[in-house]
Amino acid sequence: MRLKLFIALIIGTLFSTQMCNSQEEILYKKVDTTHLFLEVHYPPNMDSSKNYPAMVFFFGGGWVGGKRSQFLNQAKYFARRGMVCFLADYRTSKINGTTPFESLKDAKSAVRFIRKNAKIFHIDSTRIIASGGSAGGHLAAATAFIEGYNDSADDTSINSIPNALVLFNPVVDNGPGGYGYERIGDAYKDFSPLHNIKKGAPPTIIFQGTKDHLIPVVTAEYFKMVMEKVESRCDLKLYEGEGHGFFNYANQKAYKSTVAEADQFLVSLGYLMKEPIINID
């Protein structure tokens, strides 16, 4: 009831002229004493009579730590391009004493919350993009491929599957030899995105450094091959000599390149207008 009341209270102000150039922090989930928020970035001069694509970002950090601000600059850019962008909190072992399984439950809850409240956010519920880096890339991909690990408090009649994926050196293989297997064990069979690709998988773009010491290029290449076997699009962009986390804002060249490539991918899906890319900063 508290969550519903909170949403109702923001309806009247969320999309006023004054709010269209700003951001909001919205509670999307409460677990015991833990409060999880979405930081929302809106397009400038937002027209409340229109529905916009949405993009939700999940930070990296091995499901151990990290901050939602990792993708702040990407969110600001795509908001300027005409998307409603969300930076999502989720539980991690360092802060909350949780496992990767709780992290996935939260990611799926976040997508459901966004889709459930599509009218409030003025977004098109059929154009929701999940994005993330490293373990956050796993969470984004897993919302699309993993059927289980749904929070018992979620309304599972609301689809948690995004309509497209933008993944930055994502953890997609949790099997033996893959990332995180020592914590996940045999549960990888229904937790690892690579092992659960099926027909109807959403179009995907992956950004991968060739010198990544955590995610081998061959893993990304195999993921692409399996996606194409089920007739789903998977663009793989390799960055020569780049290591893990190369896409972050501190690496300006790679940051701008990956954002530009993601922009064109979303243009090709019809999620963004075909217009010159605005300055990436």
Rank of each mutant, 00 (worst) to 15 (best):
L272W: 13
F247D: 14
Y222L: 08
A254F: 09
E228D: 11
S257V: 09
Y222G: 09
F265Q: 09
Y249I: 03
A220H: 01
K224V: 05
G245A: 09
C234P: 10
E231S: 15
Y239S: 13
K253Q: 09
Q252K: 15
E261D: 15
F223E: 01
K237I: 02
L238H: 11
H244S: 05
M225P: 01
K237M: 03
E242G: 06
F246P: 00
V226S: 00
E242K: 01
S232H: 08
Y271T: 12
M227F: 05
N251Y: 10
F246Y: 01
V267L: 07
M225A: 10
F265C: 01
V267A: 13
E231C: 02
S232K: 11
S232C: 04
G241F: 13
G243S: 12
S257Y: 07
L272E: 09
Y255W: 00
A250F: 09
E275M: 14
M227D: 09
A262D: 02
M227C: 08
N248K: 13
F247W: 02
V230N: 04
E261M: 03
A220E: 08
K237V: 05
V218Q: 14
N251F: 05
E221G: 01
L272P: 03
M273Y: 11
T258I: 00
Q252H: 15
A254C: 08
A220I: 06
A254S: 14
Y222M: 10
K256N: 14
R233M: 12
E221Y: 02
R233W: 06
T219R: 02
K237W: 06
A260K: 13
K256G: 09
V259H: 01
V230L: 03
L266D: 11
G243I: 12
M225H: 10
M273N: 12
S232L: 05
F246D: 03
E275H: 09
T258S: 02
E261V: 08
G245F: 09
Y222H: 14
L238M: 13
S268A: 15
E261W: 04
L236F: 01
K253F: 11
D235R: 14
K256Q: 15
E240K: 14
A254H: 04
Y222F: 10
E261I: 07
E240R: 10
N248R: 15
L236H: 01
E240C: 05
E242M: 12
K229M: 15
E261A: 13
M225R: 11
D263V: 07
T258M: 00
K256H: 12
E228T: 14
R233E: 13
F246M: 00
Y239I: 04
Y255K: 05
S257G: 02
K256Y: 01
C234K: 00
Y239E: 15
F223I: 12
D263R: 08
V230W: 00
L238W: 12
C234Q: 01
E221A: 04
G241M: 14
E228W: 12
A250H: 07
V259K: 03
S268V: 03
L238E: 00
K224A: 09
D263N: 15
K253L: 03
F247L: 06
A262T: 04
H244I: 00
A254Y: 04
K229G: 14
V267W: 02
G241Q: 07
A220Q: 09
E240G: 08
M273W: 06
Q252S: 07
M273P: 06
Q264G: 05
